[in-house]
Structures are given as C-alpha cells and as structure tokens.
Computed example of a mutant assay.
Amino acid sequence: MKFTTTIDINSPIDKVIALFDNPDNMSQWMEGLQSFQHLSGTPGQPGAKSKLRFKMGKREVEMIETVTVRNLPHEFTGTYEANGVFNIVKNKFVKVSEDKTRYITENEFQFKGFMKLIALLMPGAFKKQSMKFLQHFKEFAEKENH
C-alpha cells in the first residue's frame, strides 16, 4: 500500500527542519509515543537504528527505525519495522514562502501474516494515522513559531 500525505505549516522552513530534526520533540507530535531509544549508528544519520515504543489504545507497539537517507530539507527517509508491518517513510519539506513550509510524506506499507488482513479490512486507518502525525506536527511547529 502506497500513499502520500501533505500539509502546509505556517512557519519558516529552517524552523520546521530544526523542530523535525530534534528527536526530543517527537513526543510533542507523535501521539502515543512512550519512548525513543537510540540503538546504534550516529543518531539521525543513515544506518542509525532506534527503538520506538507506542501505546495505541490498549495495544503496545514496538518498532525499529532505520534511517536510510538524510538530505534535509529535501529528504529524510527511514524504515519502520514492527510485528507484521514494514513501512518506508520519505519526509520532504518545501519552502512555499518565507513563512510557510509544505511537509510531504510518501508512505509505503508492506504487510505479513495477520496484519495483511487488518490492512485489507481497514486500509484507511494507516493513511489516517499518518495524516494525524502531520496535523500534530503542524500544530506543534506553529505553536513553537510564536
């Protein structure tokens, strides 16, 4: 399953990138994030691995992030592996004006086992969750800009 999400943020691109690029900010906009633990490699650089733990409703989800491309603002790509789900997320930031930045994510989900059934029954859930992260990041970035 592939899809793209886009949102415009009323904040200059350099401020948006600084907020996005700081892992300490992740809990401000990634709903349900319980912890972010660096595992190996140079943090934020290609090859770096981190463990993210989320609480989604009553479920605990653990995933491993591997940074694959770092060329901000043009691209920050990572893979996210969880039980039955492999996700590639390409983040891009485009300067729309001095005070507006477009945040674009290209998402590709691959499913195994039981998660294939979930994806078939609820394909919109993955796009909805991805869009929710963008909306929360926009709110966080705009609040920090003022």
Rank of each mutant, 00 (worst) to 15 (best):
H136P: 01
F76C: 05
F126G: 06
F109G: 09
H74A: 08
T68F: 03
Q45K: 12
R53T: 15
H136G: 08
Q110F: 02
L72V: 08
Y103H: 10
N71F: 12
N91F: 05
E31N: 14
V96P: 01
M122H: 12
K127I: 03
K55C: 06
G41N: 07
N71P: 12
D99Q: 14
E81K: 11
S40T: 05
F109I: 04
S97T: 06
M26Y: 14
A48G: 07
T105S: 07
A82T: 13
I104P: 02
F111K: 06
M30T: 00
Y103L: 12
K127S: 08
L120I: 01
A82R: 08
I104Y: 03
L117F: 11
V89P: 02
N91M: 00
G44W: 02
S27R: 12
G41L: 10
Q34S: 08
L121I: 07
K51Y: 11
H74P: 03
F93Y: 00
G57E: 08
F109K: 09
K138E: 08
G32L: 07
K100H: 08
H38V: 06
Q45G: 02
P73F: 12
K128T: 11
E62A: 01
N25W: 07
L39G: 04
R70W: 10
K55D: 06
L72Y: 04
K128Y: 08
A125K: 11
L117D: 05
F140H: 01
V85Q: 12
L52I: 00
S35D: 10
W29L: 00
M115W: 01
F140V: 01
K49T: 12
E81H: 11
R59M: 13
F76N: 14
I118M: 13
K58I: 14
G47Q: 05
M56C: 06
